[in-house]
Computed example of a mutant assay.
Amino acid sequence: MKIDLSGKTALVTGSTAGIGHAIAKGLASAGASVVVNGRTQGKVDAAVAALAKAVPGSKVRGVAADVSTGAGCKSLVAALPDVDILINNAGIFEPKGFFDIPDEDWSRFFEVNVMSGVRLSRAYMPGMLKRNWGRIVFISSESALNIPKEMIHYGTTKTAQLAISRGLAEMTRGTAVTVNSVLPGPTMSEGVETFVRDLAKQNGQSVEEAAANFVKQHRPTSLLQRFASVEEIANMVVYISSKEASATNGAALRAEGGIVQTIA
Rank of each mutant, 00 (worst) to 15 (best):
I139C: 03
A255E: 06
W133G: 06
G250A: 11
K130Y: 06
P81G: 12
S241N: 04
R122S: 09
D105S: 15
Q261E: 07
L224V: 03
R122G: 06
E190H: 02
Y154E: 04
A65G: 11
A251L: 01
T221A: 15
E150G: 05
T159R: 13
E170N: 11
V260L: 15
G62M: 05
V237Q: 02
T221G: 08
I85Q: 00
R39F: 01
V44A: 02
A17Y: 01
G250I: 01
L253D: 01
L27H: 04
L223T: 12
G26W: 03
W133R: 09
K74C: 04
S181G: 06
G62N: 07
G91C: 10
R119H: 02
N88I: 11
A78M: 00
S246H: 14
A28Y: 11
N88A: 10
K158N: 06
F99P: 00
L5F: 09
T157P: 00
G191E: 05
L120I: 13
V192D: 01
P81V: 05
A210W: 12
M115S: 02
G258I: 08
V12P: 06
S33E: 15
T175I: 04
I139M: 12
N89P: 15
C73K: 04
I152D: 02
K8C: 00
G97C: 01
N213H: 13
S15N: 12
V118S: 02
E193Q: 09
P186E: 04
F98T: 10
G91M: 10
M236W: 10
D100I: 01
G57Y: 13
Y154I: 12
D103C: 04
N235C: 02
S246F: 14
S241H: 09
I101L: 09
S141W: 10
G57M: 13
F214E: 00
S29G: 14
N249R: 12
Q217Y: 02
A228T: 13
